[in-house]
């Protein structure tokens, strides 16, 4: 391990590297950082077109319901998927200098969080303007949910990043696992309206809990249940502990096994 006194340095490094990667990404595209705004607009626009104008089948309030789920998921899904390659992408780096490997997935988490904050804000605006929701006191609970989802994402990202270098095959597996989780998180349906057994099973899926909590706060004007949120925190803590332990245990082995 590295001395504890170096922690502030590595935290600073996480933030600066995330900033640098975001800047590089913004400079690379023709429209620059406008894309962080445009991409979610297009993403949500597709659902708006399909369900509100096209099918008109979702019923009252289906689009806001769907958007809450999609936005919360996108932050999770895109970050976890990107962090799987965070060590491999930096193979050249970790073969030249020593870095605590946990730095690399955390950079991915921070940069994706910045990008996702745009779509979050957009969601709130859209709920108010075209869908006529008025902000209520329960909206004040949003920061708590954001922090909880952030912790969950960080834990999952670190765990995934710690495992993928051992077998690149895991990456293929991960994409399918994420897709399964996507369909099990109640993005298209309301887990509260499922049969009891299904609801109990889905209640252990932290992303289903998070998404339902957003909806409860934003759409139903009620606070989420504490028991569900404890499951989210437990999942976040467990995955972070496991991932951090694996990354620390093989800290000076990854540079040898990583494939460029």
């Amino acid at each position: 391990m590295f001395p504890m006194t170096r922690i502030p340095h590595y935290l600073q490094l996480v933030l600066f590297k995330a900033y640098a990667e975001l800047r590089a990404e913004a400079t690379r595209a023709y429209l620059g950082f406008l894309w962080w705004f445009l991409e979610p607009v297009l993403y949500m626009g597709v659902f708006y077109l399909i369900f509100e104008i096209g099918f008109r089948s979702g019923g009252e309030d289906f689009v806001p319901f769907l958007m809450c789920g999609m936005v919360a998921w996108k932050w999770f899904g895109s970050t976890v998927s990107a962090s799987a390659g965070s060590l491999g992408k930096n193979a050249g780096l970790i073969q030249q200098v020593y870095l605590p490997k946990i730095v690399l997935p955390l950079v991915t988490v921070v940069s994706n969080t910045v990008k996702s904050s745009v779509i979050m804000l957009l969601l709130l605006v859209l709920l108010v303007v075209p869908f006529g929701k008025s902000p209520t006191a329960t909206w004040l609970f949003i920061p708590v949910l954001l922090v909880m989802e952030f912790l969950l994402i960080a834990g999952a990202a670190v765990l995934v990043a710690s495992l993928v270098p051992f077998a690149q095959d895991l990456r293929l597996l991960l994409d399918n696992a994420l897709m399964m989780l996507f369909f099990m998180s109640g993005i298209f349906f309301d887990i509260n309206k499922m049969p009891d057994t299904a609801r109990q099973v889905l209640g252990f899926n932290p992303m289903a809990v998070v998404i339902d909590a957003y909806r409860s706060v934003l759409l139903r004007d009620t606070l989420p249940e504490t028991s569900g949120l404890l499951i989210v925190l437990a999942a976040a803590a467990l995955s972070m502990a496991a991932g951090a332990a694996i990354l620390a245990r093989f800290d000076r082995v990854y540079p040898k096994i990583i494939n460029r």
Binding site: K17, A20, R23, A24, E25, T27, L93, Q96
Partner: peptide
């Protein structure tokens, strides 16, 4: 180590 972590767009 030379040019460690260089990002060419920066």
């Amino acid at each position: 180590a030379l040019q460690v972590g260089f990002l060419s767009y920066l």
